[in-house]
Nucleic acid binder design. Structure first.
Lengths: 96, 96
DNA sequence: TATCTATATGAATAATTGTTCATATATAAA
DNA sequence: TTTATATATGAACAATTATTCATATAGATA
């Protein structure tokens, strides 16, 4: 069983790297239930607007979150069920 | 749903951080089937013995791999099924 | 005991990355 | 059109981290 060529190895590492930051984990956590706008996220995770925005960009670029505009606000949500699954599996692991 | 207090947030990030490196991903990949000794791992993943050893220490410390001694050699293997599951889920995700 | 092989590890270096601060952009409201 | 609010972004800095090189340790064999 050899599941990974060189490209996929890097893709895998990049994917998990995204999950490997406290701020991003917090953001994903608060997005588990419902979409939220940037300032709501910033308030909930207790991080500056700028820092949240930077991290959302990273999450967006790696397609872990999606967003929609509504007037002045931009609402972010998890991109798909896979993101939740990976999060949940990690959650299970640390609670063992 | 708020699954994470501050400690668990950090634990989650730390867990995924371990998966977030190409060398460690390669090591986990070659350990999917069977245990291997350090120099076999080094050969298979094409990284120096020293680098592999450093990474194995990190994997060991975070309890993602276990090991047993046999004479001169030390055989490493994945710690439990969770490690494989997380790896597989990541694999699924990047192959979407 | 002396030597060889397998593994571990400390220090140094280079590279990556997260936050802050200042500011830009864009939409809404007055 | 002017002002206020929400979001994005570039530069700078500090911190973290992966590799290399040299070397240490420990078990096996001669």
């Amino acid at each position: 069983m050899n599941l990974l060529n060189d490209d996929k190895t890097i893709d895998m590492a990049e994917l998990f790297k995204i999950f490997g930051d406290s701020t991003r984990i917090k953001i994903i956590n608060v997005l588990l239930d419902s979409e939220l706008c940037v300032c709501d996220i910033a308030n909930k995770v207790n991080v500056s607007q700028s820092a949240v925005s930077h991290q959302l960009r990273i999450l967006k670029q790696s397609k872990l979150v999606k967003y929609r505009k509504d007037g002045n606000c931009i609402y972010y949500s998890l991109a798909d069920d896979h993101v939740k699954k990976i999060f949940m599996l990690g959650c299970e692991h640390i609670n063992e």
